[in-house]
């Protein structure tokens, strides 16, 4: 069992076997990240593939400050952002039926355990731009300022898009909870 250090060292030497070990060890975690940014599994795998190529090519740039997984995750996130820029055309598209929804404040339904698949489904139902900002802000923990710089948009745009994404998600979760309550009753 190679340690992380040895593995990185061997990957710098472009050892094919080490590359495979690295892939086997981390691809699950990294695909888990890219899944949140993609509409579906093939898209998530596309992002992961691009990110893995970058990781293998630039592994010597990893500075050993911060965790290695954190570094790889950042590569995946950046790749997802690039991917989004490429597909920007449809980024802010919204179904007409959802346009009038306003941000309803209020708590989430109580005692409602959502499964990860349900949450993933909700994330995937978001328009690409919302999905990106929600992921970056809510899960990755980037600041609006950083997101604005990453995406080349205004800070206020980031904030307003985030709030709309949140409202969208809340509506979806409430709908899910209603369905769950109905089906749970015998």
């Amino acid at each position: 069992m190679l340690s992380e250090e040895q593995l990185i060292e061997k990957c710098i030497q472009k050892d094919r076997k080490a590359q495979k070990i690295l892939f086997e060890r981390y691809s699950g975690f990294l695909l888990g990240v890219s899944m949140r940014y993609a509409r579906n599994v093939p898209e998530a795998e596309d992002i992961l593939q691009d990110a893995m190529v970058k990781i293998y090519q630039h592994i010597e740039d990893y500075s050993h400050r911060g965790s290695f997984t954190g570094w790889m995750k950042a590569v995946v996130v950046n790749t997802a952002i690039n991917h989004f820029h490429r597909e920007k055309k449809h980024a802010w598209h919204l179904d007409i039926e959802n346009v009038n929804e306003t941000d309803v404040e209020g708590n989430l339904p109580e005692n409602c355990a959502f499964t990860r698949e349900e949450l993933l489904g909700v994330i995937r139902s978001l328009p690409a731009g919302y999905r990106l900002i929600f992921n970056l802000y809510a899960i990755e923990g980037y600041k609006h300022r950083e997101i604005a710089a990453l995406l080349g948009i205004d800070v206020n745009t980031s904030k307003s898009q985030y709030s709309r994404a949140r409202s969208w998600i809340r509506t979806r979760l409430e709908k899910l909870a209603r369905v769950a309550r109905r089906t749970d009753k015998p």
Binding site: F29, L31, G32, R36, V41, L48, R116, L119
Partner: peptide, 8 residues
């Protein structure tokens, strides 16, 4: 999604 893993 903290430790979420998905198999390629």
């Amino acid at each position: 999604f903290e430790g979420y893993r998905a198999e390629p």
